[in-house]
């Protein structure tokens, strides 16, 4: 199965091609301001580099957030448009899962954490009873609740979390398309199927900054 993954949730935009579990091509560029300009050109270049035609792609993978509102929207718009154009389904993964999946080199337990700006962090809050988790926006102090004695914080928010906790190891790194691919592979192995393009939605976590006016 051939997967094309993309991410532009942070300062980096990246694309990766996966052929039956082997990453053929990975391309990345820095500069959050250029996502809407460059992402599709980057996808096209990676596709060509891998020697794929568009119809080679069996499924798409996209990191849906949390991250920059604009960045996750660009990636989701790209994935939904490609899904429509190619008639292919999509695996939507969270940026936090993509960070964990890409951190096989880190000493476990791995704690994914993304800088949410305005002094906040995006972290994965464990779901009650289940093994899963839900991304939330919180303060660094609140994010230290329940952290183990030793852990490796991975992501753009790692330094802030380590500073607030007063312990742990920080791996400050960006979300990548290859991380999203690895998270999708984990999901597929666990029996999670892909979804239709229009079902893929940005995971903003935070509401839009707007206050309803009194009538």
């Amino acid at each position: 199965m051939r997967l094309l993954a993309l991410d532009s949730s942070g300062d980096l935009r990246s694309v990766a091609l996966d052929d039956d579990g082997v990453i053929l091509v990975e391309r990345a560029e820095a500069g959050a301001r250029g996502h809407a300009e460059r992402l599709i050109a980057l996808v096209d270049a990676a596709r060509a580099e891998g020697g794929w035609t568009w119809s080679t792609i069996d499924r798409l993978v996209v990191a849906v957030g949390p991250g920059s509102f604009t960045g996750v929207r660009v990636a989701v718009a790209a994935a939904r448009a490609l899904a429509l154009a190619l008639d292919r389904p999509v695996h939507a993964v969270t940026t936090l899962d993509a960070l964990v999946a890409a951190a096989s080199d880190a000493e476990p337990p791995v704690v994914p954490v993304i800088d949410a700006r305005r002094g906040g962090l995006y972290v994965a809050r464990p779901d009650a009873g289940e093994g899963g988790s839900t991304p939330v926006a919180t303060t660094p102090a609140a994010a230290t609740d329940g952290l183990p004695a030793r852990f490796t914080a991975v992501g753009s928010g790692a330094p802030a979390l380590i500073a607030a906790a007063g312990r742990g190891e920080a791996r400050e790194r960006a979300v990548t398309a290859s991380g999203a691919l690895a998270a999708a592979r984990t999901a597929i192995a666990a029996g999670t199927g892909p979804m239709a393009g229009p079902a893929v939605r940005p995971l903003y976590v935070r509401a839009a900054d707007a206050v309803p006016r009194a009538a």
């Binding site: 996502h35 809407a36 300009e37 992402l39 599709i40 050109a41 996808v43 096209d44 568009w54 509102f69 604009t70 929207r73 660009v74 718009a77 790209a78 939904r80 448009a81 490609l82 429509l84 154009a85 190619l86």
Partner: peptide, 18 residues
Amino acid sequence: IGGLMVGAVTGKALAAAH
């Protein structure tokens, strides 16, 4: 700008894929 980005990326993706 936020809406323009959605339209531009969507248009580019549809055009590129065909």
